[in-house]
């Protein structure tokens, strides 16, 4: 697939996920939306700052009691074609150089869409806190 079609594919998948999440949490659970949205805003910068493995391990170990954050990570794994977030993490950690670089770039492309839809669909701004 060309870069553009991968990115279009991501856009479509992510949009559907976020829309569904929005529907499931419409109106009532503000906390859930914020959790999901703040992860969408925070993770891409964390990936840039710490590298993909550190960033994914970080969000995996901080998710205690945060179901929506967990849901976000499972969504991301699904978009990246992994069976679960745990699988994605394993894959990224053990990937040789070329695969690791590709996974990083693809994750960043996907995250770009989460960030956009968190803002436009869920209405969560970058400065809003999920905690």
């Amino acid at each position: 697939m060309t870069i553009q079609t991968i990115q279009q594919q991501y856009a479509k998948t992510v949009y559907e996920q976020v829309l569904e999440f929005d529907k499931a949490h419409s109106g009532k659970e503000d906390k859930a939306r914020k959790e999901y949205g703040s992860m969408a805003h925070k993770l891409p910068v964390l990936v840039r700052q710490a590298g993909l493995v550190q960033a994914l391990v970080f969000v995996a170990t901080r998710g205690k009691g945060k179901d929506s954050q967990k849901e976000f990570l499972e969504h991301l794994a699904q978009t990246m074609g992994a069976g679960s977030f745990g699988d994605l993490l394993d894959q990224v950690r053990t990937a040789p150089l070329v695969e690791y670089m590709l996974l990083t770039r693809q994750t960043l492309w996907a995250l770009e869409w989460y960030k956009r839809f968190a803002q436009s669909v869920l209405g969560i701004d970058p400065t809003e806190e999920g905690d």
Partner: peptide
Amino acid sequence: MTTKSRRRAL
């Protein structure tokens, strides 16, 4: 519980 957080190569 701890999780290894570097790339395996590192």
